[in-house]
Design a protein around this nucleic acid. Structure first.
Lengths: 200, 200, 200, 200
DNA sequence: GGATAAACGAGACGGTACGTCCTGTCTTCGT
DNA sequence: ACGAAGACAGGACGTACCGTCTCGTTTATCC
């Protein structure tokens, strides 16, 4: 006996759902995250506020979904490049991340999302489950392939490797802690590859 | 022609300033950052709202100062341990950071501050200038000492080294991306030391 | 060409109708008139909102019917006492009215109804037709009997007499304009009887 | 020690007060009472909603004040005509009341006020105190003068007389219970004068 | 030491947004 | 096929804060 007065998802109006997510994205891009209000989203989407409150528990949840929705069904394979050379491939991936952060259109919503995640543990769990983990798994696959190819120590802790790869770029971006360019990305990759190169 | 109606700092009431900063810290600790309002701070501090608006430009700025004020005058020497063994010393530093993040009393205000910095570029600059850089300089001093001792490659980019050391712990904490314990701290330090060990 | 989508009264579910009227009365009694909503009535009656909107045009109409329904089929003879002495009989009638108004259980719905009538001319007309007029006719019958008995001037305007009898009690009750007791009722009756006593 | 957080009346902005009362009157006249909302009043008056809630406890209270304010300082002498002939004077007064009720511009706000009073006992008390009683006192003065002139029984209960005079017109108007014209007014006056004429 | 000007506490103000409740309409689903 | 259930767009509710703006009331120089 789970229910009580949880709304009946089967009756949900898909058109309204899409309008809300789209409006949310537009508003974040146009006016910046801080000024986005439920009221504004509802007005822009041509939707009653209740329809938002019925399906989402907080502004953060709407923002989250609006970005999740944007990136489409993430579930299926995110495949990373595999040229055979780990360093090259990782540099390409990190440079791509750097480029994404440099793109103002991407930057605003992702920053909004990040702040929301940092604030709300529940959202953080959802993020880890539905966005971070799939992405990380794709990267681990590439790392394992590198281990097999003898380009990476076979007993490297892949979670640690990923942390060392991702977080420096993330932190510089979020905290504006210094120049965020290809050179920095390359430096990170080179250091990590050096740290986990297979023993002699 | 500088002035116009910029308040006269010499007339500032120090008692009010302290009351505001203290009240801010208390409120963050008690009710969580999201629920802290200028109005609540003023009420708790027994201060008129205008007194806050007169001296700070935003809620973020008050939060920032309240935490800066807590850690006391940072400017003077933050000196890191130097046992002679770089790896040991870095592990000690990173483990201390991990411990700080685990302490709920520290966690809430720091998270509040971080969110504020991530949101407001101006605050980010202030943070870099008055908190991050001094801290980083202290760490760089230790790293240079290690270079001289032949424990670290003499041409290692120290900013990059710091990034690789700090950011993994920071990101895991902020995004709740996995267990944040001494083992993780040690793993990061070992990898970084390996990556930047002096060539043979 | 009458219909279009006017509901087919023959198909009406009597059980729902009764449930709605009962729920309405209960809610007025329990929570006071102001807090009664169509939604609450529907929920309490275990009925869809549409079923209410299908058969009544406004909240006022439901309230009206719920009270009309309570007093049962009014249409048939409301007969007033006739002891032969007009003054005695009128005092009894007015004292009964006073008692009704004093009864909290009766007071709330009647007040609700009165407000609704005062607000909505359509409802006022309905009220006059289906409630006031039958009641007044019964009273006029008693007055005519008094005229024949020589206790009331034969050319008294009976509508005027009724107005003078009813409205003082009604107004005191509605506007809480003073004590509403048997003494007041008696005073009204005595004055009216005096005013319209047959000439010498 | 009465206070707690009751607003400080001395700081009250008179301009806002007037704007609110005027806007309220305008809205009642234009759109009818039912459609008047606090939100609409605030918008029309160019005032924050809080400013209304700060000084009035309900919509009814605003409506009440807006009408009280209209009729100006009631306190000072409401003096009724005194030609020496009671019947003539009373007819003039009642005919004036009838005319007022017939004037659509007066009708709407007064009906609104009446409904509000009928609904809210607190408002009813305020009404009795600040509007009804002063008016009644003026009328009683005229009645007493008539008693001295030998046109009214010296032991007539003046409250009863007033009730019988006022309420028939009031009720007919409120409940739309029949034609409300000078003839009716005259009939009421004649009956009342007859009922309370001095004994032989 | 008395004038004067600023910062101060208090809090009213015009506003925006909140999250809830209800309206009246429209849709879905089970009986 | 009806009717309960309830989602929907919309609008008002009453509350919380925003940042600005007076108010009087301390301070705290400067004459």
């Amino acid at each position: 006996m789970t229910s009580a007065k949880r709304p009946d998802a089967s009756r949900r109006n898909e058109k309204s759902r899409q309008a809300i997510l789209t409006a949310t994205r537009e508003l974040i891009a146009e006016t910046g995250y801080a000024k986005v209000s439920i009221e504004a989203i509802a007005a822009r989407a041509g939707v009653g506020k209740q329809t938002i409150y019925r399906w989402w528990s907080s502004k953060g949840a709407v923002v989250f979904d609006s970005i999740l929705d944007l990136s489409g069904p993430v579930d299926d394979a995110v495949v990373l490049p595999d040229t055979g050379d780990l360093e090259t491939d990782l540099k390409q991936v990190l440079r791509a991340t750097v480029a994404e952060f440099a793109d103002a259109a991407f930057e605003a919503p992702i920053r909004a999302l990040t702040v929301e995640i940092a604030t709300d543990p529940e959202l953080a769990a959802l993020y880890q489950r539905s966005m971070a983990t799939p992405m990380d798994e794709a990267k681990k696959a590439r790392l394992r392939s590198a281990q097999e190819a003898g380009q990476l120590s076979p007993d490297a802790d892949l979670d640690l490797v990923l942390s060392l790869l991702n977080s420096p770029v993330f932190e510089r971006w979020l905290m504006r802690g210094g120049p965020l360019d290809d050179a920095f990305a390359d430096g990170v990759v080179e250091a990590v590859v050096r740290a986990f190169s297979p023993g002699p």
